[in-house]
Structures are given as C-alpha cells and as structure tokens.
C-alpha cells in the first residue's frame, strides 16, 4: 500500500463563523502501480481531497484524519518537510496547463528546476535529462522546444510539459486533477494513453480526479465515486461500470450519453445536505427510514467492491 487516507474530514470556515463541510470522513488506499480514479460532480470534494494530500489547502481549511504515505502522516508535516515530498515523491498535474506554467520562463527550465531543486543537478545535466523526457513525451524537436516559452505551445503540448514536470523526478505517486478536461477529444485520447504508459513504465501510482466516467473507463484500474464529500462506492472500474450498486453511481451511468441510447432525465433537487444521514437521501429512489438518521457504513459486495448504502438488496 502506497498511500492511505483514514477518515479524512475537511471543512472550510467561511464568513460569520459558519463552517462548510467538504469531506465527511473519507478512507481509501492506493496501491503500488495502480491508477485510482476519483469520480464526482462539481462540489463532491474530489479536488479538495487531492489538494489536502500535498498540503495545498487554503488557511481557512480545517483538516482531520490521517494521510499516510511511507509510514508518515502527511497532515502532520510542516510545509518545509512537505516540500521534500512535493515534486520528487508525490507530484501533481493540474487541469489548466496555461496557469500551471510560468509564462516568463523557458519550458525546459521549468521542468529542469524540479531536478535542480530536489537532486542538485547542474544545469547541463538537468537539460540533458529533460530533453530526453520531452522526447519520450512525444514532443518533436525537444532540444529546440526546451528553450521556448509556454505561449509557443498548443494546449496539448503544454499539458505534455506539465506532465513532464510531474514525472521528471520519478515520483511514486502522481496526483492528476482533471488533466484532460480542457483539451479537445483527439488530444485527450493522446494524453490519456501517454499517462497510462508513463505510469506503467515507471511503476508509479496515480490518483486521477475526473467528472467523466468515460475517461475513467479508459484509464482507471479502480474507481472511487464521490458524492457531496462522501465516498459512496469503490471497486474495480469494470466491476463498478457493469454492476453499479449505489443508486447514485447507477444514475450517473444512466446519464452518460451513449450512441443509440436515449438520455434519461433525473431530477436534481437543490436541497441542502442533511448533516446526519446519507448525502444522497434527498434524491434517492430506494431510501428507507434510517437513511435520514445515520450515514451507512460500507457494505462489501466482494473483496474489492464496496458500497455505502443501507438498501442495496432492494436495488438492482
């Protein structure tokens, strides 16, 4: 086990002393060499979760629980201690490549900076390594492109540079926050393939955050489905897609546009989340009395497939 989250709770203090809950106690593990997809709509807490691993949350966040990586609880480390992990052992790929890159710095140098900071490589040594990596990432004329600026690159090429920064130090864990959402479909398909190959070649693990189930099917080994700060279902991607157990997962899958299948409309109420019970209770078609009172514990469908639902027997 490479990373394990234990009862991670995050809330934000907002104006007037109110706190907003973003994560309501999330626990899961990521194993060596796997791509774990975190799937959820906007507001599900998936991005917040990712940021908390690297200590990138804003100061008004209150965090409890544990994030164990290599025997250490990352939540207890100081920013200084964390900076030794960031980029070298755990790295992050952001959604918007234009804002993740420094517009005034040559792209090659931005990638090389990681090597110089963490391993103290000389400029020459770092450049050599980075050029080789750019070539591996399918960037043509890497020696020449090394010295260009982000604005000289297309969206897809820029995202390759961001990926280069994330993998150059051979981290054990890569955190990817919707890395293909801003890209066209042909570029998305190339980047997904590239990420899969890179992770496999290096034996690294990846947490891949997305709102798109079709992307999960392409890249993921396992998937965790999040709804309003709660992990409601988890399992191998194929298993969850074929046999979803949670009513939310099932609805999500039915809402995916599939050629030759009419779209199903679901009602989306705007009611607030009940603080005690299941977060899905307002929308749930199979809710029972106790769903309002307490959060269901995980029920194991098999050794890898688990669901937070009181009523999966009446739902198939």
């Amino acid at each position: 086990m490479l990373l394990s989250l234990e009862d991670l709770k995050i809330s934000f203090r907002v104006n007037g002393g109110i706190t907003k809950e973003a994560l309501r106690g999330v626990s899961f593990s990521v194993f060596e060499g796997e791509i774990y997809c975190l799937l959820g709509e906007s507001g599900s807490g998936k991005s917040v979760l990712l940021k908390s691993i690297l200590g990138l949350l804003p100061p008004n966040a209150e965090v409890s629980g544990r994030v164990i990586f290599d025997g250490k609880n990352l939540l207890e480390l100081s920013q200084k201690e964390l900076s030794r992990f960031r980029g070298s052992r755990i790295s992050m790929i952001f959604q918007e490549p234009m804002t993740a890159l420094n517009p005034t710095m040559k792209v090659g140098e931005q990638v090389a900076e990681v090597l110089r900071f963490h391993f103290g490589l000389s400029t020459k040594e770092a450049e050599k390594k980075v050029v080789a990596l750019l070539a591996e990432l399918g960037i043509p004329e890497p020696e020449h492109r090394y010295h260009q600026y982000p604005h000289n690159f297309s969206g897809g090429m820029r995202q390759r540079i961001v990926i280069a920064m994330a993998v150059v130090a051979n981290p054990e864990l890569i955190l990817a926050d919707e890395p293909t959402t801003a890209l066209d479909v042909t570029v998305q398909s190339q980047i997904l393939h590239l990420l899969k190959v890179l992770v496999a070649r290096r034996g690294a693990s990846m947490i891949f955050v997305t709102h798109d189930f079709s992307v999960v099917a392409e890249i993921g080994d396992r998937v965790g489905v999040m709804y309003r700060g709660v992990l409601v279902e988890e399992g191998r991607v194929e298993e969850v897609l074929r046999f979803p157990k949670h009513p939310y997962t099932k609805a999500l899958i039915e809402a995916i546009p599939v050629p030759g299948r009419p779209l199903v409309s679901f009602s989306v109420p705007k009611e607030n989340v009940p603080t005690e019970g299941c977060p899905y209770v307002v929308r749930c078609p199979v809710k029972i009395g106790k769903c309002f009172e307490s959060m269901p514990d995980f029920v194991y469908v098999d050794s890898t497939h688990r669901v937070r639902c009181f009523n999966i027997d009446n739902f198939s």
Partner: peptide, 16 residues
C-alpha cells in the same frame, strides 16, 4: 475517422 476513434468508447461496451 480520427475524431470519432478518439471518443473514449471503452465505456460503451461496459455499460451497453
């Protein structure tokens, strides 16, 4: 052809 083959389509065979 390229555009259509780039559509993430693995999911269609899993949920179809």
């Amino acid at each position: 052809e390229n555009l259509i083959s780039s559509v993430p389509s693995k999911i269609f065979s899993l949920i179809g």
